[in-house]
Design a protein around this nucleic acid. Structure first.
Lengths: 308, 308
DNA sequence: TCACGATGTTGATTGAGTCAACAATGACGA
DNA sequence: TCGTCATTGTTGACTCAATCAACATCGTGA
C-alpha cells in the first residue's frame, strides 16, 4: 500500500455521500420521464454506439446480463429498439434504436440537460466555475489515473515568476519553517532575471505535468562571462521521484554548454538534501560553505561548482 | 437564467456518467457485506445521529417514508436497532443502534474505507492529491452554493507575495495583453515592500473568499513621512461586483489615517477602468497623467491623490 | 472433435422506488 | 375549545433493480 494520508479516504467518502444525496436523485427518474435511471443509462449507450450487443452494454455499465436482457425486451415492446442478427456471429444480436427510440432519447437528453442546467443556475458564477474545473480534474484523475504523468519542459509564461516564488515559499515554509524573507529574495532574483535577461546568456525552464507547474530552474549570467549561475531549482512534492529535478538540471547544464560557458556555479543550503543529491549526481562539487542566518533560521549556505 | 456556458452542462453530465459507472458500484453492495446501498446509507445515518426519527432520515436521504419504515423493521428483526417512544412526542419514535448494530456498522465502515483506499491506491500520488482537492472544491460548491461568498481581509502569509504577482500578471496579460515586464515590476515592488517593511508605516491586506485569494492592496511608506502610497490593488474576476475593491481601498484609507498619514497617493494606468471608479468613489482626485511605454503597450499613467 | 468460454434468455427471490390510503398525533387559528 | 391541517409511521400494491442459478447456443482453439 502506498503512503496515503488518512483524511483522503474520509474526504472522498464524504464527497461520495454528498454526491449521492444531492445528485443521485437527479439522474434517477427525471420528472415526467418514462425511464428509470437504469433504463436511461442503457438508452444512452444505445444512442451513443454503433450496433452494440447486449454484452457490450452489460460490460460498460457493470450490469447483469439478465437485467439488460429484460430491459431490452421492454424497449423492443415499446417500439424503441430493433434487433438484427449479426451476420458474422450467429449468437449475438446487433441493437439499434428505431426513430421512435431516438426521439425518446432526444427528449430524455433535453430533460437531463435542463435538470443539470437548473442545478448549475442555483450556484453562483464563481462556484460554478470552480465546480466545473474540479469536476474535470476528477475525471482526469479517474480516467487517466493509470498512465504515468508525462513531464515536459517549457519556457516562462505570464504568471510563472510569481508562481515560482509562491510555490517555493510555501514548500519551504511547510518543510523547514522558512519565513517570508525567502519569498522576497526569490522575487527580487526573478525581477532581476527578467530585467537583465539576455537570450545569449540566460534561460529558464518550467517543468510541466498535465498543465501544472511541477518545478523550475534558471540559468543566469554573472560578471564573469565564462561562469553562469544555476538558480531557483525546485521540484513540487507531488512530482518527486519522477526524475523531474534531474531532467531540469541536465537540461540546464546542456544549455550552459551550448551557450559557451566554462563553468556553472550555484548557491544552496545544506538542509535541501534532495537538491544536493541531484547536484552531486550531475557532477557538481562542493566548493565551500558558511553559516548564515536567513529566513528565520540558522542555515549553512553552500557554493557548488561544475566545470563544463 | 444566468449566463452559463454550454459546455458546463455537458461536462458535468459526463462527470456524472463517469462517476456513476466507476464509483456507483463501489458503495453499492460492498463485497461480502449483508447490506445494500440504501441499507448502508440508512445505517450510516443511524450511526451518526443522536436518536433520530424515521422522518429525519427520510428527509436527509431523500427517501420514501415507506421504504425507511420497512428497512427499519428489517433492521429491528435482525437485532440491529431498538426503538423507544419519544417522551415529548407520542407519534414519533427515537431510533438507536444496538451493540450488534454498531458492530455491523463498524464492519461496514471498515469495508468501505478499504474499498475507497484501494481505489485511491490505484492512482498516482499526484493524481490523488488533485483528486482530493477537486472533491473538496466540489463539496464546497454544492454545500455552500446557496450562501453568498463571505469576503474577509487578512494579512500576508507565505506564498502571498508570489501569488499577488502571478495573479495580477495573468489577469492583465489576458485582459490587456501586458507582458512579463509587469510581473517583474510587481515582484520588485513586493520584494522592496518586505525588506523595508515597518509596521508603523506599512500594511498589506489580502481579500479572502472561502480560502481563496480574491484581491490585494498594499500601503507603503515613501520619502515624505506625511505621504503614503497605495499600491497593487487588484480584484479577481470571479470576485468582482461584490464590493471587494471598495472594501480593500476603504480599509487601506482608514489604516493610513490611523498611522497618521496626511495624504495618500497612487499610480495607476488609464486602462484600468474598474479600479479608477473605486478610487474616484473613495475621494481620490486625478493629479496628473503622462503617456509611457511599458509592458509591451502604450499606456497612460496616472497619479491620484487623497487628502486624509 | 471436443472442451471451454461467451452470449442471450428465463425463473426465482429480495430489495428499491413509488403511489395511495389510513390512523395517530401535534400545532395553530378561529 | 374545537376543528382544521400538517406530520409521522405503517401497510398494501405494483413495477423495476439486482442477484443467482440454470440452460441452450454459438464460436474458438487445442
Amino acid at each position: 500500500m502506498l503512503d496515503r494520508p488518512q483524511g483522503d479516504v474520509a474526504l472522498l467518502r464524504a464527497f461520495n455521500r454528498l454526491y449521492t444525496n444531492q445528485l443521485g436523485l437527479l439522474d434517477a427518474h427525471l420528472d415526467g420521464s418514462r425511464f428509470t435511471l437504469s433504463e436511461a443509462r442503457i438508452l444512452y449507450e444505445l444512442a451513443h454506439r454503433e450496433d452494440p450487443t447486449a454484452a457490450d452494454i452489460a460490460r460498460t455499465l457493470n450490469m447483469d446480463r439478465a437485467q439488460i436482457s429484460r430491459t431490452l425486451k421492454r424497449f423492443a415492446d415499446r417500439g424503441l429498439l430493433e434487433t438484427r442478427d449479426d451476420p458474422g456471429h450467429g449468437r449475438q444480436q446487433l441493437l439499434s434504436l428505431t426513430p421512435t427510440g431516438r426521439a425518446a432519447f432526444a427528449d430524455l437528453d433535453v430533460r437531463a440537460q435542463e435538470a443539470i442546467g437548473a442545478l448549475l443556475d442555483r450556484v453562483s458564477a464563481r462556484q460554478r466555475q470552480r465546480l466545473i474545473g474540479a469536476a474535470s480534474v476528477m475525471m482526469q484523475a479517474f480516467d487517466g489515473g493509470d498512465e504515468p504523468a508525462s513531464v515536459t519542459l517549457r519556457g516562462l509564461r505570464p504568471g510563472d515568476l510569481g508562481l515560482v516564488a509562491a510555490r517555493q515559499m510555501m514548500l519551504y515554509a511547510e518543510e523547514y519553517g522558512w519565513d517570508q524573507g525567502y519569498e522576497a529574495l526569490v522575487s527580487r532574483i526573478l525581477a532581476d532575471f527578467h530585467d537583465q535577461f539576455d537570450p545569449a546568456r540566460d534561460a529558464a525552464w518550467i517543468a510541466d505535468i498535465d498543465g501544472e507547474m511541477a518545478g523550475s530552474i534558471f540559468l543566469v549570467h554573472g560578471d564573469d562571462p565564462a561562469v553562469a549561475k544555476l538558480r531557483l531549482l525546485y521540484v513540487e512534492s507531488f512530482a518527486r521521484g519522477a526524475g523531474v529535478g534531474r531532467l531540469l538540471v541536465e537540461t540546464c547544464i546542456a544549455h550552459a554548454r551550448r551557450l559557451g560557458y566554462r563553468r556553472l556555479t550555484l548557491w544552496t543550503n545544506s538542509v535541501l538534501a534532495a537538491a544536493r543529491h541531484i547536484y552531486e549526481r550531475a557532477g557538481f562539487v562542493l566548493v565551500d560553505e558558511a553559516p548564515h542566518h536567513s529566513f528565520g533560521h540558522d542555515l549553512i549556505g553552500q557554493n557548488w561548482s561544475l566545470d563544463l
